[in-house]
């Protein structure tokens, strides 16, 4: 039998890797994909917890997360396109107009 905490550990690992991607990469596309990765990690945790505790909320939340992730990906990419048209770059360190 799998210990339930194994699922949570896996979720944490996926989440952590996603975080690394967000923090350490310069390409905006990669960053956005890392965000998707983080969301997936969370989904794993939700589903695992829901199934072990018998609470339907776990499944519902996972569902909502997926929906939101989709919406967010769409809007994010639209922004990226608009930005690319303006700045001709996908490097996030180029975007530093809003500073002190």
């Amino acid at each position: 039998m799998i210990a339930p905490s194994a699922y949570l550990l896996l979720s944490a690992i996926l989440f952590g890797i996603g975080v690394v991607g967000v923090v350490a990469r310069k390409n905006i596309l990669i960053i956005l994909m890392s965000v998707e990765l983080m969301l997936n990690g969370v989904n794993v945790a939700f589903v695992a917890a829901g199934s072990y505790l018998g609470d339907p909320a776990g499944g519902v939340f996972a569902f909502m997360v997926m929906t939101v992730a989709a919406a967010e990906a769409a809007v994010g990419l639209a922004l990226l396109i608009a930005l690319y048209r303006l700045k001709e770059t996908v490097d996030i360190t180029e975007l530093k107009v809003l500073k002190w």
């Binding site: 039998m1 799998i2 210990a3 339930p4 905490s5 949570l8 550990l9 979720s11 944490a12 690992i13 989440f15 952590g16 890797i17 975080v19 690394v20 923090v23 350490a24 589903v47 917890a49 829901g50 199934s51 072990y52 505790l53 018998g54 609470d55 339907p56 776990g58 499944g59 996972a62």
Partner: peptide
């Protein structure tokens, strides 16, 4: 990267402490 690693470790420790009953999967999804 280091911070992320720490986060994972912390989560791992926390994960071990939160008890959930082992058992067959409930029909949740």
């Amino acid at each position: 990267v280091i911070a992320a690693g720490i986060l994972i470790l912390e989560s791992a420790v926390l994960a071990r402490r939160y008890w959930m009953p082992k058992g067959p999967a409930a029909e949740v999804g």
